[in-house]
């Protein structure tokens, strides 16, 4: 149940940041900061001790939501990125505790994971394979 809550809060936070930033045209800094601030005030108030973890995951996901439209063009992809963020957050919960920027690094890894996956799918598509500039890594060829 706790894992599900973390994933849900992450998705909500990511979507809200993405919408405020791109649809309302408020910019990524304001969008992420307002989502972080509101989650930091309200989540611990309503969910107590567990709310502190939810607040941190909401902040983490809001950093991922700062992504540009050219990289994540629609909200469905943002949901996937937010889900990856939540899973990475759970897996890396004990890594680099207390280091500022840890949450942003998790967010960046999530974005890179999804963008890399999209590029992989694009590159393995037979229709576009012959149009690619680089066809091998160039070690033996």
């Amino acid at each position: 149940m706790e894992i599900l809550s973390i994933i849900l809060v992450s998705i909500l936070s990511g979507i809200l940041t993405y919408l405020i930033s791109n649809n309302l045209k408020k910019g990524p800094v304001f969008a992420s900061a307002i989502v972080t601030l509101v989650s930091g005030i309200f989540l611990p108030h309503f969910f107590g001790e567990f709310g502190t973890s939810l607040m941190v995951v909401a902040a983490c996901s809001s950093y991922a939501g700062m992504v540009a439209v050219k990289n994540i063009p629609n909200i469905w992809e943002m949901i996937i990125v937010s889900t990856i963020t939540a899973m990475l957050f759970i897996l890396a919960s004990s890594a680099y505790l207390g280091v500022g920027g840890r949450l942003g690094t998790i967010a960046a890894l999530s974005c890179f994971t999804w963008i890399g996956f999209k590029k992989f799918v694009y590159a393995t598509n037979l229709n576009v394979k012959n149009t690619l500039k680089y066809k091998s890594v160039g070690i033996w060829s």
């Binding site: 950093y63 992504v67 050219k70 280091v99 500022g100 920027g101 942003g104 690094t105 998790i106």
Partner: peptide
């Protein structure tokens, strides 16, 4: 570098934090 990727700022900050440490 990596402009438009969500979390770029956090990664930069993590690097600065580790250098400061």
């Amino acid at each position: 570098i990596y402009a438009g990727i969500g979390g770029k700022g956090g990664t930069t900050a993590a690097m600065a934090s580790l250098i400061t440490r």
